[in-house]
Simulated assay, not measured.
Amino acid sequence: MIDQLLDLAEIIAAFGGGAFGAALGALPAFIFTGFMVIAGEAAAITGVEGADAITANVAFGPPFSPAISFAGGAAATAYAARRGYIDTGFDYHEAKNIAFALGTKPDVLAVGGAFGVLGYWLTTISAQFVGGMPYDPIAMGVVLSALFHRLILGYSIIGKVRGSGILDMTPFEREERRPAADVATDGGEAEAQADAAPAAAAQTGRFAVEPWLPHQYKWANVAAIGAVAGLLGAYVAISTESAFLAFGISAATLVFLNCGVEQIPVTHHMTLPASTAAMSVYDWGGSGEFFDPNLVTYQDGALLAAQPLEVALLVGLVFGVISALFGELFQRVFYAHGDTHWDPPAAAIVFGTFVVSIMYALGVFPHTVWVPWF
């Protein structure tokens, strides 16, 4: 693990990936992750030699790994907002404006690059510690990178809770606004905001509570889209023998959200766990030979081993729902009251893939597909 952490070529490439993510903006960079996953998985399905490198080295490597390019872009956005570089009239704090391309400012690119390297290290530690921690290491890199950018840049971890409790979204529904006096003090930022007066002034009148997706935060609605995305993710995965294609499709659809199309759902944190869970329980011939024996251990006696397609689809539905609901829970705690983007989908993917591992450990699932295991 130490050798990989200190791999100079990977570190340099990760710096470039994080800086490029800052230049494009975090969300546009992630959309390109989706495009590259589609390209890589489509090439692999059709048997193109070397196609795996597109997914592994480009989509999930230094150029567009979410832990590198997206996380670097999110950190750079938080930095740029702190410095007063962003004034777009965004409804929330400008540090949450991850659709905004940050351009070519050297200091912003440097911050993105530094967090790209951090994301590379965080991913490597998760993937290699004790043979691999039992969750998606890239998603965990995104989650931990956001924690570090809040701590390093002086933002509050959670923010000031308003309403009747940390999970209460009703102040947003009532269109309640924050007092102007809160602008300079939210998240313990008074001193830093004094150095960025224009940015601070632009935040006057922010909503008291800021749901991650104003069109996708009600529990029933979140569960409904989770069920739909889970079903489709499971079907795509089994039909194509790819755990990642549905994730790529979900990520690519965010191009419409980035372009301002209203009501576009965010579903990649539903389709990826659903795809993985469905592939785990599906009957590939009863032997598990479809899967790489170097990655997983097949349990013939697992409770849900070798299930028909109908059962696999229902398992995907369940994982789509629970991952969607966990993402919503995470956003209510760590996004809605804070000032920077802390990605609910990444946290939900960590949770969903960890549950796949737990199901394997309990003897319910016969294997973990691609999720690392001790």
Rank of each mutant, 00 (worst) to 15 (best):
G132H: 06
A53F: 03
H93T: 15
T77A: 12
G163D: 10
G72W: 01
R162Y: 14
S156L: 01
G163C: 11
G61V: 08
T88Q: 12
G163K: 04
G112I: 02
G119D: 10
L118Q: 10
M169W: 09
G103P: 07
A95D: 07
A139C: 08
G61M: 04
Y79H: 09
E175F: 12
L147E: 02
Y135M: 12
A110N: 09
V108H: 06
G89F: 06
V161Q: 08
F64T: 00
S65L: 12
A146I: 03
A114P: 11
H93Y: 14
I158M: 11
I157K: 01
V130W: 15
W121E: 08
A67I: 00
A114L: 15
E175M: 14
G165E: 10
M140S: 09
G72Q: 03
R174G: 04
I158E: 08
S69A: 15
Y120I: 04
P63L: 07
R83K: 15
S156G: 15
A110K: 09
A127E: 13
G72S: 12
W121K: 04
G165P: 00
D91M: 14
V117L: 11
A101W: 06
V58S: 02
Y135A: 05
T123V: 07
K105A: 12
G141P: 11
I152D: 03
P62L: 02
G132Y: 04
A99W: 07
A80L: 06
A95Y: 06
T104H: 10
Y92G: 12
A81K: 08
F100T: 11
Q128P: 00
L167F: 15
R83Y: 05
V130P: 02
E176L: 15
R150L: 05
Y120M: 09
F64R: 00
G159S: 05
N97D: 14
I86F: 13
A56K: 14
I68M: 03
F60P: 00
R174V: 02
Y120L: 10
I166Y: 05
G154V: 10
G73V: 01
A114K: 03
A99N: 13
F148K: 12
G84L: 09
Q128G: 07
G159W: 02
D107T: 15
V111M: 12
P171N: 12
G72C: 10
A81G: 15
P106K: 05
R174W: 00
G154F: 09
F129M: 14
G159H: 03
G163N: 10
L102R: 01
G72A: 09
P171S: 12
I98C: 06
T170Y: 10
E94F: 11
F129R: 06
H93V: 15
A59Q: 08
M169L: 15
P66L: 05
A146H: 07
P171A: 13
I86P: 01
F90P: 05
P62I: 04
I158P: 00
I125M: 02
R150A: 03
P106C: 07
L102E: 01
P171H: 09
G72D: 05
G84H: 05
I86V: 14
D91V: 15
E94N: 10
T124V: 05
S65G: 13
D168H: 10
P134Q: 07
R174E: 09
M133G: 00
G154M: 07
G163I: 02
A59I: 09
F64H: 00
I157M: 15
G131L: 08
G103V: 01
A78N: 03
A146R: 02
I166Q: 04
P66I: 05
M133E: 06
L102H: 04
G131E: 06
H149A: 04
